[in-house]
Amino acid sequence: MRVAVLGGGYAGLLVTRKLEERLPPGDELVLVDETGDHLVQHELHRLLRYPDLVEDVSIPLTELTERADVREATVEDVDTDGRVVQLDDGTLDYDVGVVALGSQTADYDIPGVAEHATPLKRIEHAAALRREFFDVVDTGGGTVVVAGAGLAGIQTAGELAALAEGEGVADAVEIVLVEQADAVAPTFPARFREAAHDALADCGVRIETGTTVTAVGEDDVETDAGSFRYDALAWTGGIRGPDALGGERRDVRADLRLDERTFVVGDAARVVDADGERVPASAQAAVRASPTVAKNVERVLNAARNDEAAAHLEKWAFETPGWLISVGDDAVAQLGPEVFRGTAANVVKSSVGLTYLAEHGSLRAALRVLREELGDERVVPEP
């Protein structure tokens, strides 16, 4: 029997690692990923300031798996009825499939966004935004706009503001964060939103909420409140499904099953959990759903061996201990009802990153990221 896991992000990697433990030796486990590397997405914004971290936040999947066959290819289409995956270099059939292809940045068909804005989903995006920032510096300064004030937008704006401060050009380069809703982090609890707003303001970000982008030109952003000039534009204004799913995020219930033999997990899914709650698209949700998917894949496979339909699949309920974001050198943490910033929040944020990298990457990579975040050369010596 063959299990195909499509995508090597948080969900795809963790499902694969669980299945390596659960599947019998005779079953084939294939992990397909476009780059062949696992990107630690929650640290991607750090590359705006610390480009040398690139090798520590992008880790070859062959180093993170044991028995899976890692195949580097682009998934172009998934035929769940025929259980066939169309790749850019051929096809792959499966007995049970897991679609964990993540999401892409949505431009909502706003004129000019695709042509003029840079998203922040890949390493090359971070490198491009960093180049664009320094182009602004080299021409004497200007305005860098970040469109979209979800968690990614907040972290991007904060990192750019910290980069400007660190380069001594904070007076010449203005960072502007634009958000359609009336608050930053609009889908999060009020105290978290307020703390994130204050952290952004404290690091010098100009915040424009209640502002809808309607078009983007070569050097100006048009909004329902008027237009303003920009010199570099980052777009973090929402997500859509992967191209292999027609750009749609697929709706699934708490067992994460798309059909009898196919599951979908991570940002590619729109999940209503066992409590009837809509689950937010986040790395945290992808990580927490992965064990349930692995268990259900095993149950479906066992039933398929006997030509039976699997029954009584495990249901998943999303529970979160809180939320963490970095805002430049600051951080905002919500653990239970408590929201805090500063040193304590930074320690929690860095510890979460350290734990993830140490468990799923390498200890040295984890310590290098921690050293850069805390600015302490004593954390780990250079090799």
Results as ranks from 00 to 15, higher is better:
residue 68 A to W: 03
residue 50 Y to D: 03
residue 58 S to N: 11
residue 43 E to F: 15
residue 78 V to G: 07
residue 62 T to E: 12
residue 36 G to A: 05
residue 64 L to D: 07
residue 60 P to C: 07
residue 55 E to Q: 05
residue 48 L to Y: 10
residue 46 R to K: 15
residue 65 T to H: 01
residue 59 I to V: 09
residue 67 R to N: 12
residue 51 P to D: 04
residue 48 L to F: 07
residue 75 V to W: 02
residue 52 D to E: 15
residue 61 L to T: 06
residue 66 E to S: 10
residue 42 H to V: 00
residue 46 R to V: 07
residue 73 A to L: 10
residue 75 V to C: 05
residue 65 T to Y: 03
residue 40 V to E: 05
residue 60 P to I: 01
residue 36 G to M: 03
residue 57 V to L: 04
residue 78 V to H: 01
residue 45 H to Q: 04
residue 63 E to C: 05
residue 51 P to L: 10
residue 56 D to G: 06
residue 73 A to Y: 10
residue 61 L to C: 11
residue 51 P to C: 07
residue 70 V to G: 02
residue 43 E to H: 14
residue 38 H to W: 13
residue 66 E to P: 00
residue 70 V to S: 00
residue 70 V to M: 05
residue 49 R to D: 11
residue 60 P to V: 06
residue 33 D to Q: 08
residue 45 H to P: 13
residue 43 E to T: 08
residue 35 T to S: 13
residue 56 D to V: 05
residue 70 V to T: 09
residue 57 V to K: 04
residue 44 L to Y: 00
residue 66 E to R: 02
residue 40 V to S: 06
residue 49 R to K: 14
residue 66 E to H: 12
residue 68 A to E: 08
residue 34 E to H: 12
residue 38 H to Y: 13
residue 73 A to T: 05
residue 45 H to G: 03
residue 75 V to S: 01
residue 39 L to N: 01
residue 66 E to D: 15
residue 73 A to C: 07
residue 65 T to W: 05
residue 49 R to L: 09
residue 37 D to W: 01
residue 39 L to I: 05
residue 54 V to A: 14
residue 37 D to E: 15
residue 77 D to W: 15
residue 35 T to G: 07
residue 41 Q to F: 15
residue 41 Q to N: 12
residue 74 T to I: 12
residue 66 E to M: 08
residue 68 A to G: 00
residue 41 Q to L: 14
residue 56 D to H: 08
residue 45 H to C: 03
residue 56 D to E: 14
residue 36 G to F: 02
residue 78 V to K: 10
residue 35 T to Y: 04
residue 33 D to M: 03
residue 40 V to D: 01
residue 50 Y to H: 15
residue 65 T to D: 00
residue 72 E to D: 08
residue 43 E to K: 07
residue 78 V to R: 07
residue 71 R to H: 14
residue 51 P to H: 09
residue 44 L to Q: 04
residue 68 A to S: 01
residue 48 L to R: 01
residue 41 Q to I: 13
residue 36 G to K: 08
residue 53 L to P: 07
residue 58 S to P: 00
residue 57 V to I: 10
residue 57 V to M: 07
residue 60 P to N: 06
residue 55 E to T: 10
residue 67 R to I: 02
residue 45 H to Y: 14
residue 47 L to N: 02
residue 58 S to D: 06
residue 42 H to Q: 04
residue 44 L to S: 10
residue 75 V to T: 10
residue 34 E to A: 08
residue 40 V to K: 04
residue 76 E to V: 01
residue 54 V to F: 12
residue 74 T to G: 11
residue 58 S to C: 08
residue 51 P to R: 10
residue 74 T to R: 15
residue 59 I to W: 00
residue 34 E to W: 14
residue 55 E to D: 14
residue 53 L to N: 09
residue 48 L to A: 05
residue 36 G to L: 11
residue 72 E to A: 11
residue 44 L to E: 09
residue 48 L to N: 01
residue 71 R to A: 02
residue 59 I to F: 09
residue 46 R to F: 14
residue 40 V to Q: 01
residue 77 D to S: 15
residue 71 R to C: 08
residue 33 D to V: 00
residue 57 V to C: 02
residue 39 L to S: 07
residue 62 T to S: 11
residue 54 V to C: 10
residue 59 I to L: 03
residue 70 V to E: 03
residue 53 L to F: 02
residue 46 R to C: 12
residue 42 H to A: 05
residue 45 H to R: 05
